[in-house]
Write a protein that binds this DNA or RNA. Structure first.
Lengths: 363, 363
DNA sequence: TTGTATGCGTTATCAT
DNA sequence: ATGATAACGCATACAA
């Protein structure tokens, strides 16, 4: 294993011989310092007072051998892994990025390490990944948009406390949900359009299998109805939360029903696609058509023009989730209130009725 | 631990009682199936033939108890963790997203699990994370843009084989680099601009501390010089690889030296910022100024207009890296050739000289 | 083919 | 305060 012997590769330069000893054990440290393994363990964990002299000797030995405790052995013995399983639908989605960052940063201080995996929008894989977490004996689990049904989640939560983001569940000591108010966000966005004078407002929906996509559709519908405009199914096109779907939906919309003055997209990626489709057709935003997205991805403020959208405070949500799961692990009770979303008015929407009274038209 | 006893919370509905047994051990399975622990182990790992009868009995017991082997114990005993440490500079950067996806997917088949962490562009943290990997006894390590010096890397590679993406190192059995040809990519991009008739080509650089940022600057310079145009330091502004830096640099550029006809940005994010700055000033792209980025982020093809940029096949690089590290773990030799980059010509660049001869001007 | 015994590197429970 | 000693849950060399 530890042969640092003859390099048979001719011409391979001698690498500088740096002192990081492989596989030093706690026992070796104990021997070197002339104490018992337990003492070393105690010093490592600060779990008891030790004579300064021995403390010194041990610390010196640790430094000299560059000793690193074996996390596996430690976890096996202690029953704690200091590890949080984080399940996303897709690690690479720009939408999850900020969540992950929030989680990672907030987990750093209390000393937990996140393990990120993705289920690739696949329920079977979601289940497999959860079982992997359990097999790894994670101390807690954070789910981003779980698709599994609640009984199953409750079931898994018996192994480790679980926090589900973007979903409301029957809260217990080991299972909690942090709902996000998609309905309200979508309603606010639509209201904004209505206030700007828009009446024919198209909607490009997300996948019908997503709870939040449905909620956003409902928010759109609710705002329409409360304004007395009424919902027109003809103005709704199906997207898939991706740019390609947004572009395709927009094409269909323009072909079928070209009279709308505004489009509300179920998420920003969809809006990107829609924007491109309009650009191709020479439709100007916002001069000809107003455009609103949902999520406020980092790049949305750099679109041309910058996209008006509904902001999810994902980084903050991530932090909240991390703090929450740690509290659950420590068996402290937590109170999670639904996350409100806020409309960020940028430059893809425009008023199409004459401004009311002596309107001071600041956007 | 396993008290599923009285809920003291009044009104809490009885959750469906689902059968996932906590902490079943291999030994319990052995007992239930009437065989020895080793037999169970053998069946689990397929490490030896067993009588079909016993095989059946064991499998049935496993199913009945919903048994999941404890990964920690298994790893501690076997010395293998089936785990790959993946160090990024920032999990949330759109730039790393596709790499992670490639790595994750390619690691899936051989049965390895990636552990993603980020060092947040901090060398000290990079080191800390690496030591964490070692403490976790990962079987291999993939580094995305390591900042640590080569001797240190070589040192760490004694614990687990390491693969460094975007960098060339002295290859050995345990340390390998997969360089990316930034210089070539930048030169191609600049050449493209030159071929389009541009002479005054500005450059917004990346952070000087980044090797690849320097290479890109060199590529830009090389193309200029080989075309006899010559490098003009006055046309170079400092960016930071982020949108904000790109916007600020563009502002300075326009104020200081407004005569350029094209801008080449060290990465796409910088280009996004530059694009916005021009939009604000009413400078049209590509009519007034041509714009080229670097990286080809997923959203770049949805910019308005879609961004001409240098494409890094990140997903494929991720897959390559994953396959490579597995081979190194299996002590197979690998050959990594530098990754070539390709220019993706989209719509932010435009020819500013009359087309040569009967030019058929397809973009 | 199968079972027994030992080890993996810690933590934790005892005494002392 | 410190040191033996027994878990932790599994793999594996060895014996049968």
């Amino acid at each position: 294993m530890t042969d640092d012997g003859s390099n048979d590769k001719p011409g391979a330069p001698k690498v500088p011989n740096v002192p990081v000893a492989p596989n030093v054990t706690l026992e070796a440290i104990a021997r070197a310092a002339g104490v018992s393994p337990s003492t070393v363990s105690r010093i490592l964990n600060g779990s008891a007072r030790v004579l300064p002299a021995k403390q010194q000797a041990v610390e010196e030995a640790i430094a000299r051998f560059n000793y690193r405790p074996n996390v596996l052995a430690r976890s096996l013995a202690s029953g704690r892994t200091e590890t949080i399983g984080v399940l996303t639908q897709a690690v690479s989605s720009p939408f999850y990025a900020e969540w992950l960052r929030g989680i990672e940063e907030a987990l750093y201080e209390p000393g937990f390490t996140p393990i990120f995996v993705s289920s690739r929008w696949n329920v079977a894989e979601e289940k497999a990944r959860l079982e992997q977490f359990i097999a790894r004996r994670v101390d807690g689990i954070i789910l981003l948009h779980a698709q599994l049904d609640e009984p199953t989640l409750t079931d898994y939560s018996r192994h480790a406390p679980m926090l589900v983001l973007g979903r409301s569940v029957q809260n217990s000591a080991t299972l909690a949900g942090l709902p996000i108010d998609n309905m309200q966000g979508a309603r606010d966005a639509t209201r904004h359009l209505i206030e700007q004078g828009h009446r024919e407002i198209a909607f490009i929906a997300g996948p019908a299998s997503h709870e939040d996509a449905i909620e956003r559709l409902e928010g759109y519908r609710a705002a329409l109805e409360e304004a007395g405009i009424g919902f027109d199914a003809d103005l709704v096109e199906q997207g898939d939360y991706l740019e390609t779907g947004g572009a395709a939906a927009m094409e269909r919309l323009m072909a079928r029903h070209p009279s709308f003055s505004a489009v509300f997209c179920a998420n920003d990626q969809t809006a990107y696609g829609a924007r491109l489709a309009m650009f191709r057709r020479g439709v100007r935003v916002p001069d000809d058509v107003s455009l609103v997205g949902f999520d406020d991805l980092p790049t949305s403020s750099y679109m041309t023009p910058p996209l008006t959208t509904v902001r999810q405070p994902t980084y903050e949500i991530g932090r909240l989730a991390a703090q929450g799961i740690v509290q659950m692990i420590r068996k402290q009770s937590i109170a999670l209130s639904p996350i409100p979303l806020t409309l960020v008015t940028r430059e893809t929407t425009r008023r199409i009725t004459p401004p009311v009274k002596r309107g001071d038209t600041r956007t």
